[in-house]
Write a protein that binds this DNA or RNA. Structure first.
Length: 746
DNA sequence: GCCTCTGGATTTTTT
DNA sequence: ATCCAGAGGC
């Protein structure tokens, strides 16, 4: 290989790349070339030191990052590195469980349940445990269980530690849920990590095999790993201890997913001999952008200060824009995008628009469509969440793993086969009575004289369905994947069915898309393609599919934007309540994370940065006004300009309407404080109010003595009170306690 | 058993 | 505002 490889690095980068023995902690600011360091480090290990790629393990945050790193390495080394283990934690663990999971009772055909499957299973688990899923929203339960799993808390431990009534409910569902996952021969996302750790702890001989194999281990985005992931890393590195982790505490934005910043600090404790490297020179952004970023993040207290600097030119001032509402905000983005590209200075590909919540993408999309500017929406209605795609995958999953009752229930009557609720419940009860899976029950009912009591017609339908799936299972062992695909589409009647649906053509196109996704697996021998195909569709993320070669402006959440860079970045919704998000208002730690999120967004920009906010924003039908984001207040005025720059010709391709507003609607004064008069003149005590709490629910129009009219966003029972979040027309979002807030229905 | 309507929830971020 | 699940009618 090219022995001058390391000359392309600056001294700090080079030292970090060459520190190949023992534990290494690399603290790398945004744009400091950390991906470059990891890549060169591996190239150095393989090309110069002569390490077999088979002995290297590298963990990335997304599949896309893994793919790109592999490509770069193949170029650098002008050879294949396919033996190297390179991927996300989830993908790597799925592989380990596929190979060795049987040692802890996970059959090879296990399937990975996504959030949707999980919720369905949890609903069943709740019903089984005599808990009304309506009273305890599965979403919240799922979050609690995921949190527990990410901290390696088993159902038993969870029940022991539980403090509240809610915990008790979760504990009961958690326990049941785990059993049902096992019955379905399924694992959820958290299990991929957790079960792998469990495997290593239970089977030291298997751990030893992996420990010996991985001479060098690298973990990127270490600040966003959780406890289980760190545990896994420590286990794997236990033998050779050549472990390099790379991260930036200022870019830690996944604590809600149980990522634990303490991992970075604990690394130094757990590996006291670790060498620490700082990468502080930024090569990405203009000096002005970098200074804006530094000012934004400087207001955080909990930091391990990385001092960023750059030799880059100052560049343009950062542009601050206030729009009237989100429609105008979007329009201004589109207009500016057109202006930048019209001068041929930038291509649409160079531009990204970033936002806090997915809901914000809507107004943007509408504007891009209206003005005919091409865009790429990173999340949208996620491809793999489309009904028709999920249906077809359910067929594949059932064929692969007949124990998967969630998939079975999804498709047994799609297309309609005359199997309604009643027959299904009946068959399910029968299966449960016998202690077998739904599919096994179908088998027995089909093959023997023993049948559940129900209409002969339903039994016949079950029989036909069972034989069809059995036929597919046989086909799956002899046919290439795509032929199996086509056969399922045809024989199940799904093709005809979906085409007849509203939007049938579009849905069929989506299935065509899935067909394309399956293509690369077609070359695998029949019977061996299904498993990797299903695994890859389970583990893809939205950013994985972001195509840089396709022309268009990228619309992306701030979270998804981590690790990416663009010459031009627009961040929209810099308002109190949006960024920072109002859910973080009463938790300083969460507020710091919001600030980091803003920092991540700002540091994505190479040359041009636009920070936008809207004076008025609609939310769930209602509308409200927000103050400017506190993050904007961290930015010194001399770095910014209020107007779009003038160095490009002002000649939008599509004429835009003139500004729609004169701030006529801006409230003159906050409403004067008028104490609400008690209905009967009597003083209302807290207890009195609580004794007759008016029931508010989401969507209710309410009136507050001080804040005026608003709409209820959410209610949450806390202790012996209720916390209500209301979006007020004039003052934005407020979190109120029912017992104190004198709220009236309007 | 299938279709239509309505009430309720939904919007924080995702491998 | 919009989407979904469950209820009720055909």
């Amino acid at each position: 290989m090219n022995t001058d490889l390391l000359k392309e690095l600056n001294p700090a980068q080079r030292k970090a790349a060459e520190a190949i023995s023992g534990p290494v902690l690399i603290l790398a600011g945004p744009g400091s070339g950390k991906t470059r360091v990891i890549t060169y480090r591996i190239a150095y290990l393989v090309g110069t030191i002569g390490i077999n790629p088979h002995r290297i393990l590298a963990v990335t945050f997304t599949n896309k990052a893994a793919r790109e790193m592999r490509e770069r390495l193949e170029k650098l080394l002008s050879g294949s590195v396919k033996d190297m283990t390179l991927g996300t934690f989830h993908a790597i663990c799925a592989g380990i469980l596929r190979r060795d999971g049987e040692a802890i009772g996970i059959a090879k055909e296990f399937v990975i349940f996504d959030a949707d499957d999980q919720e369905k299973l949890m609903k069943q688990a709740a019903l089984d445990a005599d808990i009304d899923p309506k009273k305890f929203p599965v979403g919240k339960i799922a979050a609690a269980i995921s949190q527990a799993k990410s901290q390696m808390v088993t159902p038993d431990k969870f029940k022991e530690q539980g403090k509240s009534y809610f915990d008790e409910i979760v504990g009961r569902i958690y326990e049941r849920y785990e059993k049902m996952l096992a019955q379905n021969n399924a694992v959820d996302f958290d299990d991929l990590l957790l079960k792998t750790v469990f495997l290593f702890k239970r089977k030291p001989e298997i751990l030893k095999r992996y420990q010996e194999r991985y001479l060098h281990i690298m973990v990127d985005e270490f600040q966003d790993t959780n406890l289980v992931q760190y545990e896994l890393v420590k286990l794997l590195a236990g033998q050779h201890r050549n472990i390099a982790v790379v991260g930036d505490p200022d870019q830690s934005i996944y604590s809600w997913r149980a990522a634990d910043l303490r991992n970075v600090f604990n690394f130094e404790r757990d590996f006291p001999d670790a060498s620490i490297h700082y990468l502080e020179q930024n090569y990405r952004s203009t000096a002005r952008i970098l200074e804006v970023a530094s000012n934004v993040i400087a207001d955080n207290r909990e930091r391990k200060a990385i001092k960023l600097w750059t030799q880059n030119e100052p560049g343009e001032p950062v542009c601050l824009i206030e729009a009237y509402n989100e429609q105008e905000e979007a329009q201004l983005v589109v207009r500016e995008a057109e202006r930048l590209t019209f001068a041929k200075k930038y291509r649409l590909n160079d531009i990204a628009v970033m936002y806090r919540t997915n809901a914000q993408s809507r107004a943007l999309e509408e504007a891009f469509i209206r003005y005919g500017v091409p865009y790429k929406l990173v999340a949208g209605t996620r491809f793999y969440e489309r009904r028709e795609v999920k249906d077809l995958i359910a067929y594949f999953r059932l064929i692969h793993n007949p124990a998967d009752s969630i998939s079975l229930m999804r498709i047994i009557n799609v297309p309609p086969r005359g199997l309604g609720e009643k027959s299904l419940v009946e068959m399910q009860a029968w299966a449960r009575e016998k202690g077998i899976s739904f599919f096994e029950a179908l088998d027995i009912a089909s093959a023997s004289t023993e049948k559940p009591t129900m209409a002969a017609r339903a039994l016949a339908s079950f029989d036909i369905f069972f034989k069809m799936i059995q036929g597919f299972i046989a086909d799956s062992k002899t046919l290439p994947l795509l032929e199996l695909f086509d056969r399922i589409m045809e024989k199940s009647g799904y093709q005809v069915y979906i085409k007849a649906q509203p939007d049938g053509e579009e849905r069929l196109e989506n299935i065509g898309e899935l067909h394309t996704v399956a293509e690369p697996f077609n070359a695998l021998p029949p019977g061996e393609a299904l498993s990797p195909f299903l695994e890859s569709v389970s583990l893809v993320s939205d950013v994985d599919n972001l195509d840089e070669t396709e022309g268009g402006v990228t619309l992306i959440t701030l979270h998804q934007a981590k690790g990416l860079e663009f010459p031009v970045v627009f961040i929209v919704g810099l308002e109190e309540g949006v960024l920072p998000h109002f859910r973080s208002f009463d938790d300083p730690a969460q507020m710091e994370e919001e600030r980091r999120l803003c920092y991540v967004g700002v540091t994505r920009a190479k040359r041009r940065l636009y920070l936008l906010r809207a004076f008025r924003r609609s939310l769930m039908g209602g509308s409200m006004t927000n103050e400017e984001s506190r993050f904007l207040k961290s930015i010194p005025a001399h770095l910014t300009t209020a107007a779009a720059s003038k160095d490009e010709p002002v000649q939008p391709l599509v004429p835009l309407q003139k500004k729609l507003y004169q701030y006529a609607e801006r409230p003159a004064q906050p409403a004067p404080f008028v104490p609400a008069s008690p209905p009967s003149g009597a003083v209302i005590s807290r207890t009195h109010v609580r004794a007759t709490p008016p029931a508010f629910k989401t969507g209710d129009q309410v009136k507050h003595a001080v804040f005026g009219d608003g709409v209820v966003i959410s209610t949450l029972p806390v202790k012996d009170d209720t916390e209500i979040v209301v979006a007020f027309k004039t003052v934005g979002l407020k979190k109120l306690l029912l017992s104190f807030a004198r709220l009236e229905k309007a």
